[in-house]
């Protein structure tokens, strides 16, 4: 399992999040919390341990954890298409 903290970005689809709070309650890095709108949001992305808990336990499939490298690769592909 990748444990490289710097390499991960957590993103949340607010439209799919129902604000149950499971991700925020159990996140070992305290990356997530429930915002004022009742939806989960990322408060400190830097402490993410990439354990995958939030992604596996989100009942609404609203959390995506991506490695930065992969995001960069995707961009390259996108650019290639545009070019």
């Amino acid at each position: 399992m990748a444990k490289d903290k710097q390499q991960v970005v957590v993103s949340i689809y607010p439209d799919w999040c129902k604000g149950c709070g499971i991700c925020a309650a159990f996140c070992p890095g305290e990356v997530l919390e429930l915002g004022p709108d009742g939806k989960a949001r990322v408060v400190q992305g830097a402490t993410c341990r990439n354990c995958g808990f939030c992604e596996h336990h989100c009942p609404d499939f609203a959390i995506v954890v991506k490695t930065k490298r992969r995001i960069a690769n995707n961009r390259e592909v996108d650019h290639a298409h545009e070019g």
Partner: peptide, 21 residues
């Protein structure tokens, strides 16, 4: 470990409304 959610999205019905009921 990544792409867990995207993998699931791949198996969901794209003409169904989400979030689920």
């Amino acid at each position: 470990m990544a792409e867990v959610t995207q993998l699931i999205h791949h198996y969901l019905r794209h003409n169904k409304r989400f979030p689920h009921v």
